[in-house]
Amino acid sequence: MNTGRPRVLLIEDDASLQRFVGLALEDLGIELLALPTVDEGLAELVRAPVDLILTDLMLPGRSGFELIDSLAANPALQGAARLVVFSAGLNPQVRLRLERPEVWRLLSKPCSLVDLQGCVSDALSLGGEQAAAIVVKADPATARAIAEHFGGNEPLYRSFRASCLQQFGADLIEGDRALASCDAQALRRLAHSLKSVLLTLGHTQPAILARALEDSSHAADWAVATPQWHELREQLRALR
């Protein structure tokens, strides 16, 4: 059904980050389609055009780089849609790889509410005002996260945090499963997502641990990754 609203395709497998984008964009008058894999995203592009594509790079199955390759091979799939890479892994080497005509803009995770809204508004030529800031009183780390990532909007932060705490239960199960089965790729992907979510929430030390776990699981160094996961697991349980 065509709603007449701009269609934004988000390819992101982390449920908490899907929720963050949904909360950030809910007042922009768009239709947001959130899908967890490149294959599902490409199937949606075959089904109907979109106006903007937001994609992570580290995804289950095919990566964001492979999405870009697919769009380059079949430009009709992208059409007039602008493509924004929304990732926590935008180091200089990755940025160089992303200097391609299919890519319109890069957006680093964690990203502020204002930056995300501004990027989408620019891409869709929406204009308008950003979400109003709300003065908050909170502990320093939380207040800083609300100011930096949520434009001072405490209710939005609280809503996102509640969804993250619920998701942490599933994350604990997934981490235990990945460790028990020695699935280094799954553990790395989980650590990568948790790193961004924890930074967005203002939990710096657990985010640093998640980053370390991302590196050790990438190397399949189980002697290091195992105690790191157990420590991160306890910190997630404490946050819940």
Results as ranks from 00 to 15, higher is better:
E44A: 06
I53F: 01
V8A: 12
L236W: 02
P92N: 13
E148L: 15
G4C: 15
A207M: 12
L10I: 00
D13E: 10
D183V: 05
C182A: 11
C111R: 12
R5I: 09
A210L: 12
T226G: 08
F86W: 07
L17G: 13
A48R: 15
E102A: 07
Y157E: 03
L45P: 01
L172V: 12
A178E: 15
I30D: 09
A143E: 15
H203V: 02
E66P: 07
G61V: 08
L232M: 12
D215A: 14
V197A: 01
L90K: 03
L45K: 01
S121C: 03
K137N: 09
R144H: 09
S87G: 14
R7Q: 04
A220Q: 11
T226V: 10
A207T: 09
A143Q: 13
N153V: 05
S108T: 08
N91F: 07
S112C: 01
T204C: 01
D56G: 08
A207C: 15
L165S: 09
L23K: 13
Q117A: 05
L232R: 07
E214N: 10
L126Y: 09
Q18Y: 08
V46H: 04
L213T: 10
G22I: 14
F168E: 03
S159V: 05
A15M: 10
G202Q: 13
E129A: 15
G64N: 02
D13K: 08
S63D: 05
D183A: 08
L54Q: 12
S121G: 06
E234L: 03
K195I: 01
A72P: 09
P6G: 14
T3L: 05
I11W: 05
S16P: 02
T142M: 01
R95K: 06
L213H: 11
A123T: 14
A219V: 10
G118F: 06
K109H: 08
R47Q: 03
K109Q: 14
V38A: 00
L236G: 13
V46K: 11
E154R: 11
E174V: 14
L23F: 10
E154D: 01
D221Q: 14
A207V: 02
N153E: 07
G202L: 02
P155R: 11
S193L: 11
D39S: 08
F160R: 14
V103K: 01
L35Q: 06
P101I: 00
S16Q: 08
L83C: 11
L106F: 00
A147F: 10
E40K: 06
T55Q: 04
L10Q: 00
L23E: 01
L59Q: 05
G79I: 09
V197R: 13
L54W: 02
G64S: 10
K137L: 04
L106Y: 02
G64W: 00
R237K: 09
S181I: 12
A24T: 05
